[in-house]
Amino acid sequence: MNDTESSTMARGAEVHAPALRIVNLHKHFGGIVAVQPFDLEVAAGEIVALVGDNGAGKSTLVKMISGLYQPSGGEIWLNGERASFRDASDARAQGVEVVYQDLALVDDQPVYMNMFLGRELVKGPLRLLDRKAMAQKTQDLVDTLDVRIPSAKAMIRDLSGGQRQGIAICRATHWASSLVLMDEPTAALGVAETAKVEALISRLRDRGAAVLLVSHNMDQVFRLADRVAVLRRGKQVGVRSLADTTHNELVAMITGLA
């Protein structure tokens, strides 16, 4: 794992290729065009927001980049290399992690087992679970990212919604060597919990993660993102730097009303 991490980093440093580049990516379901040819780059250390009305095609785009949907056409590049995903596990193996809105965590297991779900650490010739190492690594990670939980050994069921989403985001960052995708990560959270999760997402950027964030919350987009891409009925209507746009301009782009 260390090998892949360092080699990815070395490659990134050499060519300065964006963590994610999509070119002409599009998707139709039968006759319905969900996403028209779409171009976007996300660099390491950058949060790019994806906004648009209901049914605009945001989730469809995210699902193509996470391997859940096969694109109808177009290209996906990760760290300067052409990528294609057979399925979601394949995308994960290539360093794309997703934070799901509906919390893909296992309630009756401790935090550390969730952090390593599907990739548990084992030791010895019998390949027994290395619970100690997993708990230790998890504790280090949540401490570094300042996610406040009672302990890495706490059961997920005993955590609040915000703490859980914090864990899901920690997990995604821990395993993502290329990109973290978040589809409305705070949709299910209250105000205080949302603030904590947003703070966590900014810390990820500071640590050099590339984040593509789907959000319906304009204020959140302004608080968090560096750039924003707008989709309207499957069509890319523009990409703006948050520094150069206004709330009103974005709303106009989203709704199509000037």
């Binding site: 979601a88 596990s89 994960r92 997703v98 799901y100 509906d102 919390l103 893909a104 965590l105 296992v106 309630d107 009756d108 297991q109 087992m113 779900l117 599907g118 990739r119 548990e120 084992v122 390949r127 679970l129």
Partner: peptide, 20 residues
């Protein structure tokens, strides 16, 4: 790992699936 996966599947098949 087998046991951990068995428990995970019983707890949440969808979370297990997206975790590979």
């Amino acid at each position: 790992r087998y046991g951990a996966h068995v428990l995970a599947v019983g707890n949440s098949p969808s979370a297990s699936r997206v975790s590979g």
